[in-house]
Amino acid sequence: MLHSSTQDTLVGLFVAAGIAGLFFLALQVCNLNYFTEQKGYTVTARFENSGGLKVKSPVSAAGVKIGQISDISFDPKTFESVVKMRIYSQYNSIPDDATASVFTAGLLGEQYVSLEPGGSSDYLKEGSNIEITQSAIILEKAIGQFLFKSAEEKK
């Protein structure tokens, strides 16, 4: 049997290693940032079709992540998809005539919202609306249109 102080040390090390493992999983693996939630402001965009967009999908500008989707809902009056996105507060100088489009990262990748800045001198702020939007491209629709067109041309 070991000395009890050695045993204490080993048990202490074991518990510390286990807790360190949990912290590693929480911080490194799932990037837990509920406590360090970045400050930001929420803007709304309405899409005819938001495709496979999900809550927590990224919002990017020029390929850099500047925020994430916080809520997606369906407007039963206009039949549009209402997408709320939270933009991190350090990016507070995006012109309010920016265009929001739903793109796909790669062929099979996840969908994200891309903001392309316009030329306005007013900036997006809490609660503003993005007026110009471009819906997600639905692959099936595009293929259907292509087939239809090529059949027309043959006639």
Binding site: F14, A17, G18, G21, L22, F24, L25
Partner: peptide
């Protein structure tokens, strides 16, 4: 007490 700690260790080292 030990089981969740061991499982966390297992996952972390596996990753």
């Amino acid at each position: 007490i030990s089981m969740p700690l061991l499982a966390a260790l297992f996952s972390a080292i596996g990753i």
